[in-house]
Amino acid sequence: MRAGNPPPLCHKDGVTQTPFLACRNVQLSLGGRPVLAGIDLAVPAGTLVALVGASGAGKTSLLRLINRLLDPDAGTIAIEGQDIASRDSVAVRRGIGHAVQGGGLFPHWTVADNITAVPWLLGWPRAQRQARALELMAMLELPTRLAMRFPHELSGGQASRVGLARALAASPRLLLLDEPFGALDPETRDALADRLLALHRAQGLTTLIVTHDLADALLRADLMLVLDQGQIVASGPPAAIVAHPHPAVQALLAAPLAQARAIAGLVPR
């Protein structure tokens, strides 16, 4: 994609519409090193987008730009048609659900306080925060007795659920998830990914998820973006990505596809 090209995927159900999230020629370098070189992107509302690519491709930086944790050197990012650079960065962040890499739970806050961090920042009354914490814990299948525990008392799966709950707490319309299930065993990861997909659909969220789990991306995302050296080298629904000829895409897919074939060969007919 190059600057000036029409943004991809502006169509849904054959109707042209304003994309929920749009990036135009976004460029970023950190410490003199180019990180993102001209990102153009348009995400319709309600889409589950998977960002994949090798480490250092710029996936995390793109999420941080969208949440205004960084400002681009050039280009614009707009949410629902409004340029985020024109808004107060703190207000932008409180309106977006962002689960950072590694979870980033506050170790000295209880599970309930962690979950309702953004409502607390927004000044919700205590009773309402408590009710919201319990509601989200139920939604993410976290036992109520964990509410007053501290993060170090949780299992990896429970901590991931709390991180997800914190991102969802103030009912954002845009969810940014940076490897939310990174350190989990495959079974837990799969269950949690299904839960997330259900929540995403039920609440009409627009979700960007950075993942190294190609199977997860291929099986659940509406749209996949493949980043390589700061550029989007392929974008489209999973079926299109699998057939994409770009060498970076094929390199990414080679290992999981070979594994899937090998496993299929083992299964008795």
């Binding site: 932008v92 962040r93 409180r94 962002h98 950072v100 980033g104 506050f106 170790p107 961090a117 920042l121």
Partner: peptide, 9 residues
């Protein structure tokens, strides 16, 4: 933890 504190606003 620092990153999360910024990210949630």
């Amino acid at each position: 933890v620092r990153e999360a504190a910024r990210a949630i606003g």
